Simulated scan of single mutants.
Amino acid sequence: MNAPPLPPDNAAGLRQQVLDWFVRRQRAGWGAADEQAFQQWLQADATHGSAYAQWEQHWSAIDAVPADTIAQLRRNLAHDKAQLSAAQQTPPRAATAPAAPAAAITGLRRRWLLPSLGMAAAVVVASGTSLLAWQHWQAQPVFRQAYASQRGQQLEVQLPDGSQLRLDTATRLEVTYYRDRREVLLHEGQAVFSVQASAQRPFHVLSGPVGITVVGTRFSVRYTPGLAGSDGVRVAVEEGQVRVVRRDGAPGLALAQIADAQTLVAGQQITADAQGSLHPIQPVAAEGIAAWREHRISFVNTPLSQALAEFERYGSTGLTISDPAVAALRLSGTFDPSDTPTLRKLLPHALPVRLQQVAGGLEIRAAR
């Protein structure tokens, strides 16, 4: 559907008036006096005519909605109306224990995005599927693109709204823009996000068990589920602020049952384990939120096996470890991940190890 958007959420009152007039004009009893009142309403404010014309375009686009989608939404509506009827017939409970049906009614109001249940029912009954068309139209992506960087490559991406992404090595993500939000699904790797502010269209990053929400800021997200010792999520903020939540396995951020949440400001970072449990907020390291942008990776008391796996993300080092005691040695320092020859020279000086030529490369062994 290509109809333009209806007035924004801060014009909810105007939207209700538009829907009200639309429904009334579909009734058989509509007469000349009604039409005169409608024309007076149109002339009262320039926004009335444009808003009503936009709604008519949405109504005319109903043929593009799949029949099975309409049928399912109609079934949902019938179920909601039955719940509402039951809630209205249930006697109120004591004031100290609010009745469950009241919560159900509130949920229905939110679901149909209208301030009046009677109005919602009238719209759906009188116009058949107009509201369903609006909801379906809202859920359709306006932009969708997948991006991936190769091993050892960094990739710069400019998005349609002016936001920018920088992907580190071996990173895969998908960007989807909707009319009311922007979403990025980070499958693996790490990226820096420079987000153009838009209060009407928040920017969500979904990364494994964690979701990040921003309006406008610059931050980094790392998610490397296949890397031992680094299989969780790390979020670090350079500018602005972000909200980090555990998603509890929900397919999207908006539908998540949020079990944990933290707000980060510039200079702060947070990590989460593979299940999404958030650790305490920490200051960003001295090298910044993403040293890899300057082709640097840093280790602080990191097991050698884990450090070597990080190097392997950027390219083959030709190094292996078979001795668990050597793998457990701790490495600290800052390195260029693409400079394998320097790594080979430094390792015997930084740790009690030697490099032994074996079939297929070099093995890191304990020093004699």
Rank of each mutant, 00 (worst) to 15 (best):
P7Q: 06
P7V: 06
D9S: 13
D9G: 02
N10Y: 01
A12G: 07
L14V: 03
Q16A: 14
R25E: 01
A28K: 11
Q39L: 08
D45F: 08
Q54H: 04
W59M: 08
S60T: 09
A61F: 01
A61P: 00
I62P: 08
P66V: 10
R75Q: 14
N76K: 13
N76T: 12
Q83D: 09
P91N: 12
A94P: 01
A94F: 14
A99L: 11
A100L: 15
P101M: 00
G107Q: 07
R109E: 12
W112G: 04
L114M: 15
P115Y: 14
L117N: 01
A121L: 07
L131R: 06
A139S: 14
Q140G: 03
V142A: 07
F143H: 15
R144I: 13
Q145R: 15
Q150V: 02
Q154C: 11
Q158W: 08
Q158R: 10
L167Y: 02
A170V: 11
Y177V: 02
Q190T: 00
F193R: 00
S194M: 07
S194T: 12
S194P: 10
A197D: 00
S198I: 04
F203W: 03
V205L: 07
G211S: 04
I212W: 00
G216N: 05
T217V: 05
F219D: 04
L227Y: 03
G229R: 10
V233F: 01
V233R: 10
V237G: 05
Q241H: 11
R246I: 01
G249N: 05
L253F: 13
L255R: 07
Q262K: 15
L264Y: 07
V265F: 07
G267D: 02
G267T: 12
Q269E: 13
A272Y: 02
A272G: 07
D273F: 07
I281E: 04
V284K: 12
V284P: 06
H295K: 04
R296K: 15
S298E: 01
F299H: 14
V300K: 14
N301T: 09
F311A: 07
E312V: 08
G315E: 03
T317R: 00
L319R: 02
L319N: 08
S322A: 04
A325Y: 02
V326T: 12
A327Y: 03
F335S: 05
D336Q: 02
D339P: 01
L343K: 10
L346V: 06
P348M: 13
P352Q: 04
V353K: 13
R354D: 04
L355I: 13
Q357P: 04
V358I: 14
A359H: 00
A359T: 11
I364E: 02
R365V: 12
A367I: 03
A367S: 13
R368Y: 05
R368M: 08
